[in-house]
Computed example of a mutant assay.
Amino acid sequence: MGVSGCGKSEIGSRLAQALGFAHLEGDAFHPQSNIDKMAAGQPLTDLDRRDWLMVIRERIAEARVLQQGLVVSCSALKRSYRDLLRQGDEGLAFAHLDGAMELIAARMRARPNHFMPVSLLESQFRDLEPLQRDERGLTLDIRQEPVELVSQALRALQDMPAASPDNDRGG
């Protein structure tokens, strides 16, 4: 999870490969209307994101029912969005890819042909609600190399207790 340009797709893909799990790229599930809105420099609203998040939640639930591992790259900026995704699997853990706006803006400017303009980055930071103590997950510093971020995520997953009503955070 994290703002656009923080490395969700790359780290998610690498983590999925390391775990032998499928990788679901959340951006692939945006309806065209959301993509058009972002490409026009308009931030998405909670209402714009709701159906998109529900589709991702259903994919998470399917993986749970089939007992298949799944890594999802999804902004999940707000607690309410993460709560919705957790409805698909109460054991869902989040890795927040965290970094400075200036670093992420530079990365966004360097990536060609992406629908998300740098001009929307500030709105994403405004919406961002970092993981809370009762949420299962960890925060990763994107100044580190991708291989190190994946290693940290793997270690955290290994050490993270299973989700339960009394202990949702884990690590």
Rank of each mutant, 00 (worst) to 15 (best):
M1W: 01
V3Y: 00
S4C: 13
E10H: 10
S13L: 10
R14L: 15
Q17T: 11
Q17G: 00
Q17V: 03
L19N: 08
G20P: 11
G20E: 11
F21L: 01
A22D: 13
L24F: 06
G26T: 06
G26F: 08
H30K: 10
P31D: 11
P31M: 07
Q32R: 14
S33P: 05
N34P: 13
D36C: 00
D36N: 13
K37W: 12
K37V: 09
M38V: 07
A39G: 02
A39S: 14
Q42W: 11
D51T: 10
L53M: 10
V55H: 11
R59W: 12
I60R: 07
R64K: 15
V65T: 14
Q67K: 15
Q67W: 05
L70S: 03
L70V: 10
S73R: 02
A76W: 08
L77C: 04
K78S: 01
R79S: 06
R79N: 05
L85T: 09
R86Q: 14
E90Q: 14
A93R: 11
A95N: 03
A95C: 12
H96R: 02
L103H: 08
L103N: 04
A105I: 04
A105N: 04
A106Q: 15
R107G: 00
M108E: 01
R111T: 06
P112F: 02
P112Y: 03
N113H: 13
P117S: 02
L120Q: 06
L121W: 02
E122R: 10
S123M: 05
S123A: 13
D127Y: 03
L128R: 04
P130Q: 04
P130Y: 12
R133F: 09
R133S: 12
D134I: 02
L140Y: 06
D141P: 06
I142M: 04
R143W: 07
R143C: 03
P146F: 06
E148G: 00
L154Y: 07
L157S: 01
Q158W: 12
D159S: 04
P161A: 01
P161S: 00
A162I: 10
N167C: 02
D168Y: 04
